[in-house]
Design a protein around this nucleic acid. Structure first.
Lengths: 108, 108
DNA sequence: TATATTTGCAACTGATTGGTTTCATAATAA
DNA sequence: TTATTATGAAACCAATCAGTTGCAAATATA
């Protein structure tokens, strides 16, 4: 059973759940009200999110509040880092090209 | 057929392909040498990456060089933005708590 | 205590996934 | 021309996925 952050955010419903609980913790029932699917389906999504540590539970009587572990979201950010470097580099290379062209222009 | 960036990066092989061609464009054959799967499997991944616009082709004779469309990677970055705001906010809230504690300490 | 509510889990189902093998096509090399 | 090489597409397959329904357990309320 592959269970990582990237597989977790692949599903649109799960991304919506993440966005909702990012604002404030919610119970599975209240979460399910926001979707067209059953409460059990939402529960399944929450299980997946819990398994990959994107979410943590806070039990309060018979209710369970799920809240986002923002720290885990940074893993995606961390993966993006390598590409951020590349795209910034590419932009600066483009800058250099433009700069060279401008200098040549001034020389003539 | 759902085909978005998030579904595309869910697969570890596809993430590896992205990382490889981020450095420089590659043909399916040379790409496949880096993996344990068949050339055709890599080709399939490239199709998925192409369909969601993460990759573009550059035909050169009978070879096809695939290169990353870095701009499309920013879509993930853009989605992360909303959470980045939240986690910065949470940190500053934590800062405030610490600051308040420190102030109280000074008062006594 | 009896009943209602909140939840997770198991079993099942149809669709999708990632892989394979086989084949067709186009470009290059002998 | 006749291989050889590079590639994509089709057909198939086992595994996984996202959803369903039904049920059990635990907490709260009457």
């Amino acid at each position: 059973m592959r269970r990582d952050v990237f597989q977790a955010i692949a599903d649109p419903t799960r991304r919506a759940i993440i966005a909702l609980i990012a604002l404030h913790a919610m119970t599975p029932n209240t979460l399910a009200e926001h979707f067209d699917t059953s409460r059990q389906a939402v529960s399944k999504h929450l299980r997946i999110l819990t398994e990959c540590q994107l979410v943590k539970q806070e039990v309060q009587g018979r209710e369970i509040y799920y809240q986002l572990k923002v720290s885990k979201m940074k893993e995606i950010d961390k993966w993006l880092e390598q590409f951020r470097k590349i795209w910034e580099q590419r932009f600066s290379e483009l800058d250099n090209v433009l700069l060279t062209l401008k200098n040549k222009e001034n020389e003539s």
